[in-house]
Nucleic acid binder design. Sequence first.
DNA 1: CGCCGGATCTGACAGATGTCATGCCTGATC
DNA 2: GATCAGGCATGACATCTGTCAGATCCGGCG
Lengths: 201, 201
Amino acid sequence: MIRLLLAEDQHLVRGALSALLGLEADMTVVAEAANGAEAVTAAVEHRPDVALVDIEMPVLSGIDATAEIHRQVPEVRVLILTTFGRPGYLRRAMDAGARGFVVKDTPAADLAAAVRRVAAGEIVLDPSLAVASLGSGPSPLTDRERDVLRAALGGASVADIAAALALSAGTVRNYLSSAIGKTAARNRTEAARTAQHNGWL
Amino acid sequence: MIRLLLAEDQHLVRGALSALLGLEADMTVVAEAANGAEAVTAAVEHRPDVALVDIEMPVLSGIDATAEIHRQVPEVRVLILTTFGRPGYLRRAMDAGARGFVVKDTPAADLAAAVRRVAAGEIVLDPSLAVASLGSGPSPLTDRERDVLRAALGGASVADIAAALALSAGTVRNYLSSAIGKTAARNRTEAARTAQHNGWL
DNA sequence: CGCCGGATCTGACAGATGTCATGCCTGATC
DNA sequence: GATCAGGCATGACATCTGTCAGATCCGGCG
């Protein structure tokens, strides 16, 4: 019997996944979590065989939760389940100790198969994603460039970003400029979007 | 027996919802669709009692699909099921002929209840959303302002937008300026984001 | 030790952006 | 038939952005 932990912030989707996996004869959902922090607590408490973790979650992101679970209860195998196949996400998820990465667009029948393989100790990767990940490579951005881009995502001005990061306005513009160059964009907005699309933020 | 049509682009979520609702004794999923166009076809062909339609779908959006279903087979009751509780979405969904609006963050048990109520002829609205919808009111943007904001979302420059909409650069800047004013934003990026957040695009 | 990349800063400059005043044309409303 | 809102446009202005050339510090590496 494979004991499962479900971590997904949308109630309905979580309940539906629970119903879906509950139909499998060899699986049982032992705990559910609505955010990353709850996921860590539940993993420690219930020690499931496999933790199904969404990346987009409040309080603590799925990646941070994965890292924490991997640190505290390494025998719990984390299978990342997410909406977006951003190449950067895959890489960071695996770095955080995930044992598998499945996008929500895969057929429902494949999920149970992925869970079984992870439970058996295999590494499960969406093949198309693995290719994309190798193709686009790791993030070319430095930490600071990431910071300014993240701030620019919401439409902040140079002055806003400078204040938020305690930098001079000129420095912020320099980082933005180099980030724009590295992402082959034509302005900060485009740069922020492509960086996010690649999972570099 | 309530006959259901499920329209949701993410395979896994669709399969999971199907499993969840399949557990209800008085419901049966008679068709599934992965985009808006398929949803319309399936609604015409299978004439379900209730169509569960996601808003974010490729090819044809859930709102457009709802309008089309309402036009072609008005006896099919559409229940919108979506990730985002954007006030503008609710309004446009209801204008398109939807009979209910449920966000994916509601408890799983409530979904079946909502389906039953819609099937019985009731209108089902998330109360918190209805309040938000009345609070933020309808879109203050004119059609053209919407157009330029939509184009600005991706980080396009004034020249790009002007070319795309066959307008002069000055006109585009005027629309952007008035849109920025109406959304109480400080630049085009912020304006585009708040407009999208309110479901005005 | 010397070199290099990353973080930080300044100053200067061209081009993009946001605002405003002003005008014209059209369709709806009173 | 006058008024008004919306679509469309121009020109001028101040400010913001993006780029470039330098400059200083620091930590790692050969």
